[in-house]
Each structure stands twice: as structure tokens, then as C-alpha cells.
């Protein structure tokens, strides 16, 4: 759609600007403030420049958390995107089952995040949880509070359980938008199932899949509540992701300076990667004319 140039449109945006400025800019400036100052208490601050940033960049702690975080995000994207597409392709075509499937699939998305954690905490326990009990009965040693491999598996499976439906719903929305004529044409050309998927369904899903990847990347990179409830970042630091580490540092140890420097770099990383996704997405938008 051709948009006309009209700078008066700014007036329509002003309320959002004020509100978001209040709830984003002021706190962000507070963080910036902390990141360049040190304190001995009593609200006396003095300027330390970029010392905290240097300290954080040299500390293993942040790099380790970042590494764990990157692996986690990569693993869940690698599982959730293909699985979500598969589920979307398997959705019933019409009738009451569509509604039933949609509602059941969306259910995990609407559970408060700490309840998600609680559900898996209970489900995975080897004494009272179905999963932990069954696995241990089968002779597979599984204990998410003791073994870091178990903890990782639990956290990943929990995230897959929680968020695959998001990808599936998005992919389903993309599939729905494909006109029937495309399939008929494919049938006339005697295209096989794989070709229908590769040349019709996948290109049509491209836009929504980008949204799915963007949302899943952002949210998995910010994950806090669920692993915190289940493992508390442990055993050891095995599942201490960036947010968990940050909250430990800021609210637990009250190391405001380093935590603030950490925050800003963390935010910057998320923003940079998201910006790449976003640029790709808007370009797709333009090309597809969606």
C-alpha cells in the first residue's frame, strides 16, 4: 500500500512514545548510570568510566553464561522450528478437530511461566513425577538436580513443550493462506509431496517462519523463570543462563555496577541479532507484499 507522507501522524504516536519512554527510557538510563559509577553505599556515587565493562568482558562468568545461552537458543530453535512445521502440516483440514487442536496446542502458551516450571519440576522428579519415575524404572539414570545432562534435557524439553506450539500456530497460519489453486496446479504437474512442500508451502511460510524464529530467539535468549523454577541455574552453574546470572548478580549480590554493564551488553547482543532477523523479515514483507 502506498503511504502518504504526513508528519502530523506523529501526534498519533505521541501517547505510545510517552508511555514507552516512561517504562523503558528512564529505567534504561538508570542502568546506564549504574554501569559507569561505583558506590560505597549511602547513595554516594563516583565516576568509574568503563571499568565495569572491562571487568565484565574479562570475566569468565559472563562468557560462560553467554555460551550456555547461545547453545540453548540454538538447540531449541533447531528442535522447535522443524517440529512446529511438522505439526502444522499434520493439522486436520477442517471440522471441529481444527478448533480442538488449536485450543489444546495453545494451552501451554497461556500457562504462567513459573507454573510451567512447577509442572516440569513435579513431572521430572524421580519420586513423585511421571517422567522421572518412569525413566528411573526403565533403568535410565535421570535426576535433574544432580546431573547437569539431566538438567539440560529437562530444560530443553520443557521449552519445546512450552513453545513449539507457537511455531506450529504460525506455520499453520502461513499454510492457511495458500490458495487451493496452488495445490491443484501441483497435482496437474504431478509434483510429489516433497516438491509441494519445498516449492509451494515453504516459500509461502517464509514470512511467518521468520516471525517465529525472531520471537523464539528473543524469548529463549531472555529465558528466566522456567529454568529458575526447575533447576535454579544448577546443578552448579550448568543451566545458569544470562538472565538468571544477571538477576543473581543484581538482586542477589547487589553488584549494581557490574550487573548494569552486563545488562547493557546483554541488551545490545539481543538487539543486534534481532535487528538482523528484523531486517530480513521486512525485506521479505516487501517482496511478498504481504
Amino acid at each position: 500500500m502506498d503511504k502518504s507522507v504526513n508528519n502530523k501522524a506523529w501526534f498519533l504516536v505521541l501517547p505510545v512514545l510517552f508511555l514507552v519512554a516512561f517504562s523503558a527510557v528512564i529505567p534504561l538510563m538508570t542502568v546506564v548510570n549504574y554501569s559507569v559509577q561505583d558506590t560505597f553505599g549511602n547513595n554516594q556515587f563516583f565516576w568509574v568510566g568503563l571499568e565495569w565493562f572491562e571487568e565484565m568482558l574479562q570475566s569468565d562468568r559472563m562468557w560462560n553464561a553467554l555460551g550456555r545461552q547461545a547453545i540453548f537458543s540454538a538447540v531449541i530453535l533447531a528442535i522447535e522450528v522443524p517440529l512446529g512445521i511438522l505439526v502444522a502440516l499434520c493439522m486436520p483440514k477442517r471440522g471441529v478437530w481444527v478448533s480442538v487442536c488449536l485450543v489444546l496446542m495453545a494451552l501451554p502458551l497461556l500457562i504462567p511461566w513459573n507454573v510451567v516450571g512447577t509442572i516440569w519440576q513435579i513431572f521430572g522428579r524421580e519420586d513423585i513425577g511421571l517422567l522421572g519415575y518412569t525413566l528411573n524404572m526403565l533403568g535410565i539414570s535421570y535426576n535433574y538436580t544432580q546431573s547437569s545432562i539431566s538438567a539440560w534435557i529437562t530444560v530443553v524439553v520443557m521449552d519445546v513443550w512450552h513453545w513449539t506450539s507457537l511455531v506450529a500456530l504460525l506455520a499453520y497460519a502461513g499454510l492457511q493462506s495458500i490458495p487451493d489453486a496452488y495445490y491443484q496446479a501441483a497435482k496437474i504437474d504431478q509434483a510429489n509431496r516433497w516438491k509441494v512442500f519445498r516449492y509451494i508451502e515453504l516459500p509461502k511460510m517464509q514470512g511467518v517462519l521468520m516471525i517465529a524464529i525472531l520471537l523464539r530467539f528473543m524469548d529463549s535468549f531472555m529465558i528466566y523463570t522456567e529454568p529458575f523454577v526447575v533447576t535454579g541455574g544448577g546443578p552448579g552453574n550448568a543451566t545458569t543462563f544470562l538472565s538468571i546470572d544477571l538477576v543473581k548478580m543484581a538482586l542477589g549480590q547487589f553488584d549494581l555496577g557490574p550487573a548494569a554493564a552486563f545488562s547493557l551488553m546483554y541488551f545490545l547482543v539481543v538487539m543486534l541479532i534481532s535487528w538482523v532477523f528484523y531486517t530480513v523479515m521486512t525485506n521479505l514483507d516487501k517482496r511478498g507484499g504481504a
Binding site: V20, P27, T30, W275
Partner: peptide, 22 residues
């Protein structure tokens, strides 16, 4: 528009303490 979206990307953990003080 992108600046608005960056707020969706901001990790809540970053904002927890400043929010509390604000």
C-alpha cells in the same frame, strides 16, 4: 517502529531493578 520493537526484546531481568527503584 524498530525502537518500539527493541522494548519487546529487552530482557525483563535488565529492567527489574530500575523498575523497582522508579
Amino acid at each position: 517502529f524498530f525502537w518500539l520493537l527493541t522494548n519487546r526484546m529487552a530482557p525483563p531481568a535488565v529492567f527489574a531493578l530500575p523498575f523497582f527503584q522508579l
